[in-house]
Write a protein that binds this DNA or RNA. Sequence first.
DNA 1: TAGATTGTTAATCGATTAACAATC
DNA 2: TAGATTGTTAATCGATTAACAATC
Lengths: 212, 212
Amino acid sequence: MGKQVISTPVIRRLPRYYRFLGELEQEGLERISSRELALRMGFSASQIRQDFNCFGGFGQQGYGYQVVELRKIIGDILGVHENTGVILIGAGNLGKTIASHVDFQKRGCKLIAVFDDNPLIQGTSTAGLTIMPMESLESFCKQHCPQVAVLCIPKNAAQQLADRLINLGISGFWNFSHFDLKINNPDVIVENVHLGDSLMTLAYCMHRKEEN
Amino acid sequence: MGKQVISTPVIRRLPRYYRFLGELEQEGLERISSRELALRMGFSASQIRQDFNCFGGFGQQGYGYQVVELRKIIGDILGVHENTGVILIGAGNLGKTIASHVDFQKRGCKLIAVFDDNPLIQGTSTAGLTIMPMESLESFCKQHCPQVAVLCIPKNAAQQLADRLINLGISGFWNFSHFDLKINNPDVIVENVHLGDSLMTLAYCMHRKEEN
DNA sequence: TAGATTGTTAATCGATTAACAATC
DNA sequence: TAGATTGTTAATCGATTAACAATC
């Protein structure tokens, strides 16, 4: 098994597998077949076996997959046992909610600082962290070397800030601003969360339904 | 042009087109070619023309596409000029943030009520709406017939609540609970927002990068 | 051994890209 | 008319599904 490139659809399904296997583990289930798992998840059994085999099959013929073991392996692949340093920029409504609502630890991440340019909230705290001024960004990054930045800022500030952060060593963005960052560095990874697009997709499906 | 079924990848790209065309409109651009738009959006020109032709091409040969007109048409397709009634369940951190941060109007939706089972916050207001007790759900839905429910509740409550809401006429879910709803009614549409999955995907890509 | 279920190859399906005739 | 760019068909690519031999 070499450094085979994993396709995006497979990668996107991994967290889902991880989540479902967690549920199965809690139910106390020891083993599961691709057929059963397919039934639960709404995938096909074939697809599940194909997916797992991207990483070099870890089932047993005639038996199925060990739930606990499989979940651990997928967790390792996803890096949930890592400890990636994360900072969050923009402690408005959205930023604060992300900071407190998302379980970073559970996903191999650690939120280590929150920044905002509003002096009125600097010094107050969210999710156990004191909100720092934007001017501290440089010194903080030099000292703590975070790898990921969560962007909870207005879209017109996003691009400029992203460039600044890349210079400070950030190589991953979790982008909640309504803006598609233009990054030409192939080592920098961007994960966009466009809530508006998601709502529009839902609205489209509702709207179309009525036409039929 | 008939009732051709539009594939999911195309649908998911529509909000993105709409967003970019909005930006172009604000820049005052009158026309754009598929080639230029492709460059901006990181799609291929071919794909853009294919996508638009699903709905019966609205460009001009030798000229390109009228930005304003194109945006309006895609807006209509997406239903942004509709007025779909939306209720939100669960006014915790996340719920309140969604209620106030998301521009429902801009996407053809209207948030008309917020519910929560916590008596301590019932009667207080978010996003200009008074938080109502869960017991009011039945009478409210009977009277106002909302079509979409935003679920900002813990995962163990999600399935049961979804079933209750379907009985009250809800046919679309914007689901922020960490749970994949099991709905067997094909007329009910679910749009899942799994923030955790999104973060894990990012974490995976960061993690893998280091191995190379 | 017989039954079950994986790992893996082959077939199918769908989406993207390329090409080019139509036409503004 | 000539140049540009669409609409649309054909070719390619990739992902999913089906099938089955390997093996627990």
